[in-house]
Every structure is written in structure tokens, then in C-alpha cells.
Amino acid sequence: MVRATQGSRKGSWRKDEIIDAAAECFMERGYQATTIDHVAARLNATKGRIYHHYATKTDLFFEVHRVGMEHLFEAIAPAETMQGTAHQRLNAMMVAHAKAMLDYHTYENVVAQGVQLHRFEQMSPEQRATLRELITLRDDFEQKFKTVLQQAMDEGSIDQMDVSITTKTLLGGLQWSIFWYRRQPNETPEHREMLARKMVEPFVKGL
């Protein structure tokens, strides 16, 4: 699913604004403590504005989760098809993933919360089915890294190792930034690019 860009039509940018505000609220308060009132207050709007697009808080949470995954897929797409060895593609995909975790910090925090909801929360059958679809997106994303890691092993640029465990360790290490990263005043995309490369460097050297 591709988000409509702001300004494409009036209803779309209002919906995007709701999603952005909800991502901030869910990151700050967590799923359980966040209410539609909190999101409305963040927007300085009425709850009706939100309910016009989303029937429940859970539906809104799922939308934030979905958009967060879209950002990750879009971020690594250029690196997947770049010229060079599989090892170089893996490095580029890891840097792109790390930077996306920083660029879309609020959204990726919600994605991580979604995994916990899938494991522990009581939901309706319909909600659980939707969440399973979102978890499948995460599995598909992970598979992209498993594929290129196996290719790097096959070409001999990386030693043979357990592909599944290695991939989970690599992605888990980069995703840990949701806990320690905080955007700084006057921070630029170039700053986040540099930080992303520093995050990836120890993993690349380890491989």
C-alpha cells in the first residue's frame, strides 16, 4: 500500500496528519495507554475527525504499523538492485534499514509494539487476522535479508553461518535504536546517514 502524498487531495493529507500524530502518541504512551482523545489533542482537533477515517484505536494503530513497514520496504529497495557483490548489497541494505529506523523513528516504534501485541494481547478474530497480515510483512522484509546473506555466503564473501539466526541478529541490532535514539535539535538527514553507517559498521566487520 502506498500512502497518498500531502496535497494530492484534501482528504488524503488530513488522513496522513492523523497517522503522523498517532505514531507520536503510540510511541510516547504505548498502545494500551493511548486513546483517541490523545491523538485528537495532538492535532488540536475533535475525535470525530479521527473517527471519520478509523472506527477504533486498534484500526488506527494497524494503519501506523502498516505505514511503518512501507517505509522500510521503500528504503531498502534501491540497495536490493544495486550493482556489485551480494556482500555490498547486504551492506547497503543494512545502512538503508538503519537510516529508515532513524528517519521514521515513531513509526518503527509502533511496528515493534505490534509484534508484542501479536504475542500477548487479546483481540477480536478480525483484528488478529489483520495483525497476522502485518506480521507477515515483517517476515517478508526479513526474507529479503536472508536471501542476500545466503548469496554472499554462496559467493564466498561471507563465511558460512546460520542464515536465519544471523539475519535476526543483524536486524535486531539495528532495530534496537528505537530504544536509545532520540532526534537532536538541528539534526539533518546527513547526520542520520552518518549514524546509520556507524550502526552498521560493527556488524559488517563481524561478518
Rank of each mutant, 00 (worst) to 15 (best):
V200Q: 08
L174D: 01
T56M: 03
N44C: 07
T166E: 00
D37T: 14
R29P: 00
A96W: 02
Q143V: 12
Q122F: 03
Q150W: 02
I76T: 11
D139N: 13
H53G: 02
P185A: 12
E121L: 15
W13F: 12
Q32D: 06
Q127N: 12
V95H: 11
V111Y: 05
S12M: 09
I50K: 01
I36P: 05
A40Q: 02
V2T: 11
T106W: 12
S8K: 09
D37L: 11
R66I: 04
T46H: 13
E190S: 11
S164K: 11
E121A: 15
A21P: 02
V95D: 00
T46G: 13
K57A: 05
M82K: 14
A75H: 02
A23P: 07
E121S: 14
T56A: 02
V148P: 09
A33Q: 13
K146H: 07
R128N: 06
H38D: 15
K10T: 09
L60P: 00
D159G: 11
R9F: 15
A45L: 04
E108N: 14
E193K: 08
G84T: 00
N91E: 15
M94I: 00
E133N: 12
V148S: 06
T35F: 02
R29L: 13
F203S: 08
F179M: 12
H65W: 12
R42Q: 10
R182Q: 13
T130H: 12
D162W: 04
Q175F: 05
A86D: 07
K99R: 15
T81E: 09
G156M: 08
T130F: 00
V95S: 10
T81M: 04
V39C: 08
K146S: 06
A196V: 09
Y104F: 15
T169C: 09
P78M: 04
M69T: 01
P189M: 11
H87K: 15
A96Q: 04
D37E: 14
R3W: 09
K99A: 10
S177E: 01
Q143A: 14
Y181M: 04
F145Y: 10
T81G: 01
M153T: 07
N109K: 07
S12V: 11
D103R: 10
E142R: 15
R66T: 05
Q113G: 10
D162L: 04
Q116D: 10
D154L: 10
